[in-house]
Structures are given as structure tokens and as C-alpha cells.
Amino acid sequence: MTSDPTDFTALSDEEWAARLTPAEFRVLRRAGTEPAFTGEYTDTKTSGVYRCRACHAELFRSDAKFESHCGWPSFFTPLAGDRIIERRDASAGMVRTEVLCANCGSHLGHVFAGEGYDTPTDLRYCINSVSLTLEPDAE
């Protein structure tokens, strides 16, 4: 029996694998990381809304994106606090804060605080491009 496609939290690994490319599945569903400076949105300056590539939930606005020169798209705040989930991540020999889509539970990246960026929040949401799709603003 196939789960309801609007309840993304109920999708099985097989259903996710059928919906996503192997690279998307590895990052979004297995908490992988795309190589630095390879993502399509790392240097994008297009105005619009960044959505979760897995479920299309609105996550970030382009006006919260900034150049951190870290190799991944960086945002200083999500569109709204209820759009993401933050949880402790002790993998890879360090403690970080993982960022997940609140709608489907997909891995987006990590958030870092206190790095000294000249942004309103001093937060850097370091997000994999493969976790996002950009919906440009209407002209």
C-alpha cells in the first residue's frame, strides 16, 4: 500500500528513492553533504524563495542569503522558525546543529552561531544546494 503523498513523514525509503535522484536521496534522507563549491545555489543572487527539494515547503528567502565563502549557500534566518527543525548532531567527530525541513524531516544542512558575520542574527544556516529549489520572484 502506498502512503498518502501529502503526508511526507509517512513515505518509506523506497518511495523517497523513487521521488529523488541518488544525490538528493543521499543528502536529504541520509544526511549527506554535497562537496563544497559545487552546488547550483552557492553563488546565486536571484531573488525568490528557496523551497525544500523533497516536499516543496518554503524555507528561506533570497534576501536572507549572504556570501559566507564557505562553499554552500548561507542564510542568516529561515523564512519562519516553524519551517525548520534544529537538532544536535554529534556525527563527524564534532558537535553541530543539524537543520531539517519541518514538513518532511529531510536533512538540509547545519546552522552555526557566533562566527562574526555582519548579519542581523550572527547565524549561518549552511544549506546544501541539492536540498533546495529556487522559485524566482515574478518579474
Rank of each mutant, 00 (worst) to 15 (best):
M1A: 13
S3A: 14
P5E: 07
P5L: 12
P5W: 07
T6S: 14
T9F: 14
T9L: 15
A10G: 07
A10E: 06
S12M: 06
S12R: 04
E14S: 14
W16C: 11
A17V: 06
L20T: 00
E24T: 02
E24K: 01
R26P: 00
V27W: 02
V27C: 07
R29Q: 10
A31L: 00
G32P: 06
E34K: 07
E34W: 02
E34P: 02
E34T: 01
P35D: 13
F37H: 13
F37V: 09
T38E: 13
T38N: 10
G39H: 03
D43S: 14
T44L: 12
T44F: 03
T44W: 01
K45F: 04
K45P: 00
T46K: 12
T46Y: 06
T46L: 11
T46G: 09
S47K: 14
S47W: 01
G48Y: 06
Y50Q: 11
R51H: 15
R51E: 12
A54G: 15
A54Q: 06
C55Y: 01
C55H: 01
H56R: 15
A57W: 01
A57C: 08
E58D: 15
E58C: 00
F60G: 05
F60Q: 09
F60V: 09
R61D: 13
R61G: 05
A64G: 05
A64L: 04
A64C: 13
K65L: 10
E67Y: 01
S68D: 05
H69E: 12
C70P: 03
C70I: 08
W72S: 10
W72K: 08
F75N: 00
F75M: 12
T77C: 04
T77M: 14
T77P: 00
P78A: 04
P78G: 04
P78V: 04
L79Y: 03
L79M: 10
L79W: 01
G81F: 06
D82K: 04
D82Q: 11
E86K: 13
R87A: 14
R87N: 12
D89H: 07
S91H: 11
S91N: 12
S91L: 12
A92C: 06
M94Q: 12
V95T: 15
E98R: 10
E98W: 07
E98H: 07
V99H: 01
V99I: 15
V99Q: 04
C101H: 02
C101P: 00
G105N: 04
G105K: 04
S106L: 08
H107W: 05
G109R: 05
H110R: 13
H110T: 09
A113G: 05
A113T: 12
A113H: 13
A113F: 08
G114I: 10
E115S: 10
G116R: 06
G116E: 09
G116A: 08
T119N: 05
T119I: 13
P120S: 13
T121C: 08
T121I: 09
T121F: 06
L123Q: 13
Y125R: 08
C126L: 12
I127M: 09
I127P: 03
N128K: 11
S129Y: 01
V130R: 02
L134C: 11
E135N: 02
D137L: 11
A138F: 04
